[in-house]
Structures are given as structure tokens and as C-alpha cells.
């Protein structure tokens, strides 16, 4: 039996019907959702901090170099760093990293449960495992990942500051003036839309890879890798689509 891409797309879509059919006590879903929020949210804070501080710093440094000797005033750098972080880098870079961290983790966790017959055991008890195992992860991710992205944007802007003001590229006054110029709230909404969609893609795609895994540890490793690669690719495709949709008209 050959399972082509259309088979997977079809099954992925049909699977959503079961995910949203809750079965079992609310308290268990609640507990699991809180656990996921903690794992994804708190667990990812350090990496998000480190990544975004450097992304912000590099952006500031690079643009200073690009703009040096041009007629564009240096305070534009604050403005560029801010918008780069909010419009694109915070959501995309953070989520690409989280696809690696959270996605592979979810695929391995659920795939392991499939292989150790935990999923079968729950099904026999009457648990709708698609729902009980996946829904809390989706909820956890779509709540915490946008918050992480928001934090990333702020930390990135701080990173830009740290890379330029203490090193004497330009003054704090310039940077802050840039930050406060040409602000468009719409970009923040765009950032949250992206973060939400990316979070959804990472969780569902990775859980799909784990949930339907077959075979043994080799297949589990492959599923985990596939979860990350597919999440990243789909995330970038979605990034482009959102950019087109939200900036046209």
C-alpha cells in the first residue's frame, strides 16, 4: 500500500474532525493543557531570549553598516530594527526554532506512545486519543507561542540597543527616536496572526507525524525529523501567504 502526499493531506484534514471531539473529563484536559503551556512556554523562554537578542543585535549592526555614509539619518536604525522584528523576524525566527524544539519533541512523545501501545490502551478505555493527546498541545501552543513571539520582538529591540548604543555607534536618543517613529499598530496584529498560524502548523503537523508513526525507533527518528522539516517548510509557505493576504488591498 503506497501512501502518497494526497493520502496524508486527506488524512490530516479528516483527522481534525476527531481532534475537536472532546471525550472524558474536563479536568484532565485542563491539567494537560496547563502542562503543555508550561513545557512550551517556560521551557522555550531561554532559547527565545538568546536567539532574539542576537537577531536584534545583528540587524542593528548590519543596518548601521549599510546606512553609514548615506543620507539616511541614523535614527532610522531604531525604526528598522523595530519593524523587522515585529513584521518578520520575531514570529518567523522564533517559530522556526520552536519547530525544531517543540515539534520534534511532540512527534517523539506521541510517536513513542503509539509504539508502546499507550494510544491503543487509552482507546480501549474509551479515550478519544486524537483529542486528548493533541488538543491540549494545540491549545498550549496557540496561547504560549504568540506570547513568546511578543517577548522575542521586545528582546530583539533590546538586542539592537545593546549592539549599538553601548558600543558607541550612535546615541540612545537616536535609537529611541527611531523606535518611536512611524509606528503602525497593524504590524503588531500581523505578528500575532503569524504567531498563531505558525503555532497551529507546528503542533498539528508534528503531532500528525507522531500519531500515525509505524515501526520502531528508526521510523520514530524519521518521523521526528519529518515533523521539523515539514513544519519549517509549511511555516514559510504560510508566512508568504499571510504577507500577501495582509498587505494587499
Amino acid at each position: 500500500m503506497k501512501e502518497g502526499p494526497f493520502f496524508h493531506i486527506g488524512r490530516y484534514i479528516m483527522w481534525h474532525k476527531t481532534i475537536y471531539q472532546k471525550s472524558g473529563n474536563f479536568a484532565m484536559y485542563y491539567r494537560e493543557t496547563i502542562r503543555q503551556m508550561y513545557d512550551i512556554g517556560i521551557g522555550s523562554l531561554p532559547i527565545v531570549f538568546i536567539i532574539s537578542i542576537f537577531i536584534g543585535a545583528v540587524t542593528a549592526q548590519q543596518f548601521y553598516y549599510q546606512l553609514e555614509g548615506t543620507a539616511i539619518p541614523t535614527y532610522y536604525i531604531g525604526y528598522i530594527v523595530r519593524d523587522m522584528m515585529i513584521i518578520e523576524l520575531a514570529a518567523t525566527i522564533t517559530c522556526l526554532v520552536l519547530a525544531g524544539k517543540v515539534g520534534s519533541n511532540m512527534a517523539a512523545e506521541i510517536g513513542g506512545m503509539r509504539q508502546k501501545e499507550h494510544i491503543d490502551a487509552m482507546e480501549i478505555m474509551g479515550v478519544n486519543t486524537s483529542s486528548f493527546l493533541i488538543l491540549p498541545k494545540i491549545l498550549g501552543a496557540v496561547v504560549t507561542i504568540p506570547i513568546l513571539v511578543c517577548i522575542a520582538a521586545i528582546v530583539g529591540i533590546v538586542g539592537g540597543y545593546l549592539a549599538s548604543v553601548p558600543t558607541g555607534l550612535y546615541t540612545e536618543f537616536d535609537y529611541v527616536k527611531g523606535l518611536r517613529s512611524f509606528f503602525n499598530q497593524y504590524y503588531v496584529i500581523m505578528m500575532f496572526v503569524k504567531a498563531f498560524v505558525f503555532a497551529y502548523i507546528i503542533t498539528t503537523v508534528s503531532c500528525y507525524q507522531g500519531y500515525f508513526v509505524k515501526g520502531g525507533s528508526v521510523e520514530l527518528g524519521q518521523a521526528s525529523t519529518r515533523a521539523v522539516v515539514l513544519s519549517c517548510v509549511l511555516l514559510l509557505v504560510a508566512d508568504y501567504i499571510i504577507a500577501v493576504l495582509l498587505t494587499s488591498g
Binding site: G24, N25, A27, M28, K116, E117, H118, D120, A121, M125, G126, V127, F132
Partner: peptide, 21 residues
């Protein structure tokens, strides 16, 4: 293979069906 949930204690394993339903 028993299919016990390895991140849960014995008590939580046995209690799981009750907790769930």
C-alpha cells in the same frame, strides 16, 4: 508490553480511567 504510562506513578496509572471518565 503492559502499556503503562511511564511518566505516571503506579497510582496515577491505575486511576487514569477513573480520572478520565
Amino acid at each position: 508490553g503492559n502499556a503503562l504510562f511511564d511518566s505516571m506513578t503506579v497510582e496515577d496509572n491505575v486511576k487514569f480511567p477513573l480520572d478520565m471518565f
